[in-house]
Design a protein around this nucleic acid. Structure first.
Lengths: 193, 193
DNA sequence: TACTTATAGAACAAAATGTTCTACAACGCA
DNA sequence: TGCGTTGTAGAACATTTTGTTCTATAAGTA
């Protein structure tokens, strides 16, 4: 027996609205009342799905906070792989709901274990992707194994996040080109001695 | 005629409590009722000072969000200056109310122009400090003028913020030593060719 | 001392939050 | 198709939060 389509429709409609409210007005305004007014779904039905305000907010959060999955590309050269990987990340930060909501996830993480989990999981994936790129470059002999990979990974990912979430500066192609250039030059230089 | 001490006392007591609530439980819980319960100050008095919830939250915010001022040290050598500057920043992130509240400021900045201003102003100061350190190193001839200073500044500051605010990883002396080492090696390497 | 002003506390109105019940419509299954 | 089940709308209601207004009292000022 499959799931009642009405349940699915209600959940989807409600969370769409909750997501929009969360992005436009902040977490403070995500309430059963506001979602009800925005969707026409009755308050009692919403309470049926999410038993209290915190529950509703968490659901909206989890839905929007689920970060995009970025498949790695490791066929070299290093600059090209890095550029592609960070380009996808940049695109996600710039142009997806996930990018818009990321600051709120960051804030929630300081008081909410679940939000923190969402972030650390995501970062683990991101770091693994970058690491795969470096490992492939080392495998090809493009750089030697003594480059400080861990530090490079952190810098590679930190810069776009910092720029977007904390400084609220533009994240564009030109900036990314220079960022990748610098990372590559560090890797190459450190592997020549 | 000077200001009534009762006004000052009430403001201070109330904002102390609001600050603590903001740090411990998040912005959602900063309300006249909660502050009244925490301080014994009557609700009506609180409303007299801050006419609504948003007003009270903003006040708590501004108070706690004012970042520490970090005087620069530029007497060299580069590694030592950088280490000191980033060490102070790290200390602030780790051990001050400002560091604890920073994630919430970041989140608020995405919906609140004033919070955004607080951040960008702070970053301008921080960047200027790091730039002064590099400028002094260039002046001493320790590195040449063609090092990519702007990028190095961003990486220098981005890493501790990213690590603390986004990854929720430890920010300790060992990590900072390695971070500064890498920054210096980039600067040195780029100024030798 | 006399005037002014801040606070506490109560009483109140309005809104948000959460609960419960009923009638009805949509669904799955036989 | 028809029947039992389940989800929804809507009303009615209790509770809590939010915001306002008033009065008596205490503290500060001149």
């Amino acid at each position: 027996m499959k799931e009642d389509p009405r349940l699915i429709a209600t959940r989807q409609t409600a969370l769409d609205a909750a997501q929009k409210i969360l992005m436009d007005e902040g977490v403070l305004h995500v309430t059963h009342g506001a979602v009800s007014k925005a969707t026409g779904i009755s308050r009692s039905t919403l309470y049926r799905h999410w038993s209290d305000a915190r529950c509703l907010r968490d659901a909206a959060f989890r839905r929007i906070a689920t970060p995009p999955n970025i498949p790695p590309k490791t066929d070299g050269p290093l600059r090209s792989d890095l550029r592609w990987l960070l380009g996808v990340l940049m695109g996600a930060l710039n142009d997806t709901p996930w990018g818009q909501i990321a600051p709120q996830v960051v804030a929630a993480a300081s008081n909410d274990a679940e939000a923190r989990l969402v972030i650390t999981e995501f970062m683990k994936d991101r770091f693994a992707s970058v690491e795969a790129v470096f490992a492939a470059a080392i495998g090809r002999g493009e750089v030697t194994a003594d480059v400080p990979v861990d530090q490079l990974i952190e810098l590679a990912v930190a810069a776009p996040f910092f720029r977007k979430l904390i400084r609220h500066e533009a994240l564009d192609e030109d900036w990314l080109d220079k960022h990748v250039d610098l990372l590559c030059s560090i890797a190459k230089t450190n592997s020549e001695r």
